[in-house]
Amino acid sequence: MTTYAFYPGCVAKGGAPELYQSMVAVGEKLGFSLSELTGAACTGAGVISERDPLAGDVVNTRTFAMAEQLGHPIMTICSTCTGVMAQVASRVNHDADYRAEVNQYLSDEGLEYRGTTEVKHLLWALVEDYGLDRLKDLVVRPLSGVRLAPFYGCYIVRPSKAVDPLTAGREGYLEQVIATLGADPVEEYRGKDKCCGFPLLETNRKSSLALTGKRLDEARDVSADALVTPCPLCHLNLDGQQPDTPTASTQDSMPILHLPQAIGLAIGIAPERLGLARHIIDTKGLIRKLAVAG
């Protein structure tokens, strides 16, 4: 069994505690061995590197070095963390000169990164390491009859050169997982790899909410029952800001599930243990429809 250096990210331990909660529950059931990187810092979510690109590279390389010492690949449950790390990895893994420059800032901690840490999102780990067949075997309450549209967001798919040197191979993972859980993955949903609006929240709230609303409207257009996202930041907007989106008052609400929550529901974990009551957009209707409530 693969052991991961688990990097939950700030939001899973802050504004979206239900993500951490559901991951722990799902991880147990799947038999994931998670060794949490408690000493690792925030990836910077693109903002640290906006202020100081070198600083962004150093703090993330520090995390890579910690995982390298443990001898495990990093697993995240946040697309943004994954994307930021992947971009840093694309710079430090293959350029020894630059890696040496970055390592200078880590030497006083006795850390040195050798360029070998692999970064994986739970989504990739599920498909590539765990295997969809094994996942399927665990499904006890197939999510059949429900249209669960995938919402990748940006960081886990772009820029493809950094995030995924094998883009073609990783395309469609989320749909595959959703289908494995027994739900209809709503292939025609065009919003799946577009922006949720979160990065604009503080600088242009109107545009931010307009983008969030657009993604939700696109989901309504294809009659999705809910969205599933591997990104807690997308969740913050799609769920947390949903009541303030332009069309919220005239449209049905759209529940937003974290990826581990969707998995948890299908493999028989009780909704309470998945933190589904902690969403801004009520999930009770969806749970009823899934007939998994009890």
Binding site: V11, G14, G15, V47, R51, T203
Partner: peptide
């Protein structure tokens, strides 16, 4: 500008706590 505040807030908080505290 909120953009500038954000940069500073991020660096301050991550510099202080190592992680981001959203509120």
């Amino acid at each position: 500008h909120n953009g500038a505040r954000r940069q500073k807030a991020f660096a301050d908080l991550v510099g202080r706590y190592g992680r981001l505290d959203e509120s």
